[in-house]
Every structure is written in structure tokens, then in C-alpha cells.
Nucleic acid binder design. Sequence first.
DNA 1: GACTTTCATCGTATATCGACGATTTACGAT
DNA 2: ATCGTAAATCGTCGATATACGATGAAAGTC
Lengths: 115, 115
Amino acid sequence: MNTQNLERNAHEWCRMEATSRQLAALAHPARLSILNQLAAADACCVKDVVGRVGLAQSTVSQHIRILVDAGLVTYRANRQASAYALDRAALHALSGEIDALFETCCGTGCERCDR
Amino acid sequence: MNTQNLERNAHEWCRMEATSRQLAALAHPARLSILNQLAAADACCVKDVVGRVGLAQSTVSQHIRILVDAGLVTYRANRQASAYALDRAALHALSGEIDALFETCCGTGCERCDR
DNA sequence: GACTTTCATCGTATATCGACGATTTACGAT
DNA sequence: ATCGTAAATCGTCGATATACGATGAAAGTC
């Protein structure tokens, strides 16, 4: 790869890195399950999630932390029942990024894609 | 988690596992970059990808294999210039899965979401 | 004050990932 | 037959991910 290409693709690469970070946060069945549960309730405490996914409390706490760090879940501290909720704006943004990727993939003419 | 919930969520969990496997395949900047390049060309050989992402040939080969194993990329064997291409149908299916997840998240009424 | 509940964090063990160089395989060209 | 190229695979390593139990900290209950 020559230097010009490196520079030309710098922004693109950076964006992909950010997107892949969020995708990595999604890429675990337990975390998808957690997101699913957070979607059902307006807000959720850790204890409820623990009962659902069947993992140890410390493990669930870690998974939720990963989602928070990725910016997909918001956190309102409350010692007795910390309230976690989906960051719907962030999920929409990620959805847009993914759509953009698939748009590109269908840009040259895809019979299955009407975009 | 009681047994009833375990059984009730079995299918759901299985689906999430499958989805998370594909998301994991997407969750790396190099692989997003590879997908992007495959999107531009109708088909692509490994060498071209190597030039673009600036990684060793063996590394690129591994990344592509991950995409193929995840069912996101198709492979037409040709010793001199193996042709890889996006599996557009699979990408559409994954997009649908992701949309379903976000749909659920906005199901209880999201002012930002018109779905 | 003692106890319980809820949650975060630490430490640890194990498994998987990511990158590379080296090697192997297959083919076309000379 | 030999060489060069393209690609897959192997082996290795450091880094990261995943899971757990143990421990600690805050807040409510007796």
C-alpha cells in the first residue's frame, strides 16, 4: 500500500475502527440478550438481567460495562438499583453506519436491494 | 433463572448466538475494510486486498476466511486468483436481524424512531 | 449496631483473537 | 524441469475476552 492510499483511507479506516468497536460490543449472545431485555423495560437493574441470562452477577456486570463503554447503553447510578437503559440515539447511529456499509455493497446494482 | 424461562428463551438465545457470530466477523476494522473493497469490485483476489489493508498476506487470508466461515463472503476457488465476493443475501439477512433488534428497542415508543 | 441486598471491582484461570513469518500447494511461464 | 507467483495453512507469540468467586462499598431493614 502506498502512502497516498494510506492517507486517502485514513478517515475511512478511523470510522471503521469506531464502528467495529461498537460491533464488537454487540458480538456476544449474552450482550444481545441484555440489550433485548433493556429494550423491553424502560430501565433495568443488574439483578433482573442476572436472572434472565443465567450468568454470574459479576459476569453480567462486566458485560453491561462493555455496552456502556461502547456507548450503546446509558447508566444512571443508584446503588440499590442502578438503572441501565438503551442509548437509542447511539443505536440509531450505529444502524446508520451499518446501513451505509450495506448501501455501498449494493451500490453497483443489487437485484435484491431497492436502495 | 427458572427452567421455564430457560426453555422459553432457548430459541431466542440460539438466534442471538448465530447473529453474534456474524457480528463478531464484522467487528474488526480490517474485515470491514475488506468488505468495503469487495463491495466495490464484483469479485476480488487476495492480493488486491493485501495491497489495500497493509497487512501480511497470511493475515489477510485469515481475515477473509473468517468472513467466509461466517457466511458473509462467497468463495470461488481459483488457484491463480481466488475470487471472493460479498454474499449479498446473507448481508441482507443480517441487516434484517439487526433491524429486528433495533425495532424491539423502539417498540415501546421511541420519539426518534418512526418504525 | 448488625444484617441483607445490590452492585462494582479485583484477581485469576482459561480460551480465543490477531498478527506475523515460514512452509506448503498449485499453477503458469520460461 | 525449474522458477516465480498466488494463496492457504501451520506454529507461535502477545494481547484480549470470558467466566467465576471473593471482596468491598453503599444503602436500606431489623
